[in-house]
Amino acid sequence: MFRTRQLRMLLFYIKQSKNDQFNNQPSFNMKGFHTNSMRFTENKEKSGAGKEVTEKLSFETAKEKTKNSYLDMIRIYVNRDVHRRGHVEFIYSALKNMEQYGVHKDLEVYKAIVDVLPKGKFIPQNIFQAEFMHYPKQQQCVVDLLEQMEDNGVLPDVEMESMLLNIFGKRGIPLRKYWRMMYWMPKFKNLSPWPVPNPPPNDAFELAQLAIARISSVDVQTKLTIYQSSDIADSIEDTWIVSAQSPIQQDLLRQHNVKEPIYVEGPYRVWLRTKSVNYFMLRANPKIFPEETEDLSDDVSKIDVSFFNFTPPKMKSLANIPSIHEQNDATIFALCATGTSSKDSLLSWIRHLEKDGNSVLSTLSVVFTLKSSGKELTVESAGLNPEIDER
């Protein structure tokens, strides 16, 4: 079957070349496309002489990188090249430059890219073509497009399903990928208990409030407070401070041993979709809790068979249950995020905490351990007289 098809194609090209020689016409219309740009060549006759006019359009060198210009380049490719040669390279180039145009989360643009593929040509005609991935290059290209949609959180619609059905048929791998996306993506879309606006806000102050509220939500009694560093008399900077502390953390801070220091550590990073926020924590060394002994009195698999030396089960000792803020690696007293993430804003935060019901901070030694430009910056302070040291 394959040899017969190849012979027919060979005879067709031989016949076509003979007709072109007889009519003195070129056998192919020179239209080409490469990965990063579109090149079209047209032969026009002006004043009896043929001139070759070449138009180059590139995603990377376009002057205006907007959604309209992006869609215009897709329309130019579809309308100029009837046979749509190099459509796979064109789609990969379009996917590569989507973020530069700000259309990487636009469903309409993804459907316009899928519409570039010819309809009906890639549909398998028998079971062998369906199982052995008919036109694998084109199918893998569309699968990569759907994966990029999934990574960017773009949920396809019913129109996308009909487009894939017309291009690859009901047994195509891109259509299977679409069905899996439509099953799982709606389940995970609104599953997070900390919803974040989509797209997230660009204001750092709003992002800091969302981040600190998310981290401190483990304790429902946590109070979110907004401070201004300019309210402190000796403050150098004028910025905002988003602080979070619960009554349980205040009690833990009052019960802390005065001889042991507490630490301000950071910055740590938390992500809100595509935005990140740096935050700091006020902590102490972890407490040592007694290990819980396993009660084996009701375990019949390890029963001690004895007649005369039977001993009653041991009584358990009473111990306080550690709170959610007393972890194995640290005891957390408060959290904060500042506008500048500098040592001066953190010192203003500690002074605000001291005024806001944490008077014990004036008697404790506070050690500021900050990460700055590859160095570990340490600030030791007792009360309101800090001493700065770089390690």
Rank of each mutant, 00 (worst) to 15 (best):
M1F: 12
R3W: 07
L7F: 13
F12A: 13
Y13G: 13
Y13R: 13
I14T: 12
I14G: 09
Q25M: 15
N29A: 06
M30I: 13
K31I: 09
R39T: 14
K44H: 14
G50D: 15
T54W: 11
L57M: 04
L57E: 10
T61A: 10
K65D: 10
K67L: 00
D72A: 11
Y77V: 05
V78H: 10
R85D: 14
R85Y: 14
H87F: 15
V88Y: 09
E89F: 06
I91L: 12
I91R: 07
L95T: 13
L95Y: 03
Q100K: 08
Q100W: 05
K105E: 10
D106V: 01
V109R: 00
I123C: 01
P124C: 08
P124M: 12
Q129C: 03
E131D: 10
E131M: 14
M133A: 03
K137A: 09
Q138K: 10
Q139D: 06
Q140T: 10
V143K: 05
L145D: 02
G153W: 06
P156C: 01
D157G: 03
V158C: 02
M160V: 07
M163C: 00
N166P: 03
L175V: 14
R176G: 06
W179N: 03
R180M: 11
W184E: 11
W184I: 01
F188V: 03
N190M: 10
L191M: 03
P195F: 00
V196N: 05
P197V: 09
D203M: 02
E206V: 04
E206C: 00
L207T: 01
I212P: 06
I212Q: 04
S216N: 07
S216W: 09
V218W: 11
V220G: 02
V220C: 05
Q221W: 10
I226P: 00
I226C: 07
I226Q: 14
I226F: 11
D234I: 07
D234G: 08
T239Y: 04
S246T: 04
I248H: 06
L252P: 05
L252H: 02
E260V: 08
E260F: 09
I262D: 02
Y268A: 01
R273W: 01
F280E: 01
F280P: 04
A284C: 06
A284K: 06
K287I: 08
I288W: 05
I288G: 06
E291P: 02
E291G: 12
S297V: 07
S297P: 08
S297Y: 11
D299P: 05
K302E: 11
D304R: 10
V305G: 02
F307P: 08
F308D: 13
N309Q: 03
N309M: 03
N309Y: 07
N309I: 04
P313G: 04
K316I: 00
S323W: 09
H325T: 08
Q327I: 00
S342P: 15
H352T: 03
K355Y: 15
L364K: 07
F368A: 05
K371W: 01
S373A: 13
K375P: 07
K375S: 11
L377C: 03
L377S: 11
A382R: 15
